[in-house]
Design a protein around this nucleic acid. Sequence first.
DNA 1: GCCGACCTGTGCGCTGGCGAACAGAAGCGA
DNA 2: TCGCTTCTGTTCGCCAGCGCACAGGTCGGC
Lengths: 293, 293
Amino acid sequence: MDNWDEIRTAYHVARAGTVSGAAEALGVHHATVIRHVDALEARLGVKLFQRHARGYTPTEAGQDLLRVAQTTDDQFAQLASRIRGRGNDVSGELTVTSLAMFAPLLAPVLAGFQRAHRHVILRYLTGTRLFRLEYGEAHVAVRAGPPPQEPDNVVQPFFHQRAGLYAARAYTEAHGLPESLDALDGHRFVGPDSEEPRAPTERWLRQTVPAEQIVFRSPDPRAQEDAVLAGAGIGFLAPWTAAAHPDLVEVAAPREEWGAPIWLVTHVDLHRSSKVQALLKALKDAARDWDTA
Amino acid sequence: MDNWDEIRTAYHVARAGTVSGAAEALGVHHATVIRHVDALEARLGVKLFQRHARGYTPTEAGQDLLRVAQTTDDQFAQLASRIRGRGNDVSGELTVTSLAMFAPLLAPVLAGFQRAHRHVILRYLTGTRLFRLEYGEAHVAVRAGPPPQEPDNVVQPFFHQRAGLYAARAYTEAHGLPESLDALDGHRFVGPDSEEPRAPTERWLRQTVPAEQIVFRSPDPRAQEDAVLAGAGIGFLAPWTAAAHPDLVEVAAPREEWGAPIWLVTHVDLHRSSKVQALLKALKDAARDWDTA
DNA sequence: GCCGACCTGTGCGCTGGCGAACAGAAGCGA
DNA sequence: TCGCTTCTGTTCGCCAGCGCACAGGTCGGC
């Protein structure tokens, strides 16, 4: 059964009862209908219709085909309306990915979005691995650093990430507060575990602070945050993270050189769907407050 | 959804994950596959796949299509095996039609055939109306008289129908037995009701016997038979009918001029099916005995 | 780091399948 | 009985859609 269009033609012949009627319903010439039916019967080796001057009467096999094709037609019609409807509908799955450090920022926005669109199922992936939009691993990605260059990705600015140096009150009470960024000797730092620094804060830390003073290292930004809160040392945190913990002391205010642009990235194939557009709008609305804050 | 082949192509792409794989499975060039998918997406207005250098990944809509097309493919495969199998299988419906007078002759054959092929459902239509093979009203027809000329019918000789004149013993005891066919005056006859005679017996009766002597008339041959048995008059019966009733007396032995050829007729579209062939064989096997009898 | 395997994507020439037109048959009504 | 309509079915010319060839990209192994 390797020609579904011929089945569809035969189905319309069985329904209309005549070749001409089927041809009109299909919008093709009746000669085409005859060719399709003849080809299908030849391939099956069984007559589907009895031909007479007043039309085509389905044989048993033809009636069987009529039943099967009828349900197929219905299912395809339902499929089409589902698919077409989905284009203008905010429903189904919606997968967002970002670095783990943005979770406290994004999670409330995503939760609010889900409340506004009850038919959408949100998946929020965080991880060190880069989730690839072109493989359909995510609809929307939040990326930091230089603007992504992938050809099939639609990139737009999200917000500007700022970072400052903070320490827990327990740490400053034990080790004091550095007077300036030039007098950091003897202080302990919380930093990344990576071999090569990627973020501007990581590069600054490596260039400025001797390695032996970075006493707590973790590849997980959330673990670093926890370490700073526990008084393990001085570490980079976003201002909004620090603001959420009154127990933290600002060692150095956020600097322009420590900041990084954050981008919203979508795959070009999905970017136009209203589902993705709705999420992008919600994210950018939220980011407007972050930039001014 | 008016192009089922494109759906089938997209289905194979979703299954294989690559355009090339789908093209190989379908036996077409991969350029054709790309064209089909592009056309289908354009018509639906929704991306079915995310394209990347390593293949096509189905979107939600593509996965939906995959599920629907999967079941469609299964159903078509089952349909094909059913239809193809039916060609070599003696099952399903089998409709036979004949003049009502042949019912006692044919019914035992048909019953035996059904016993031999338990999966077949036999329909035996008798009636004055001519059931039309080309409209699928019957698979096999038994026709009397000159060989049928319909172009799409396959005609083969069945047996030679013979007829004699008989009367019930009750009739002969009351009215005596005619000495010859030239001395029929005063005798009563059972005959047809038709305006124009069709069977040779009917023509002979009209030419030979005055109309007023045909005292019992019926369009139904079985009713005529019952009338002869009841002693209503002399009438034409087949020898095998008379043989079944010891109460009947032969008025005139069957003559060649009273006989008529009987034909087996099938529609050319159905003639080659093994179901019809099996029934034809059973009928002709039975007729071999009738001819010699 | 280079090479090979495999993928998508596109322009071109050609052919299979399409529509147009006509022929023939059957049914229907005047 | 004749004409009209409505079917099927065949032939012919032509174009949409096919396969081919090549380009460009990515991934993995040596």
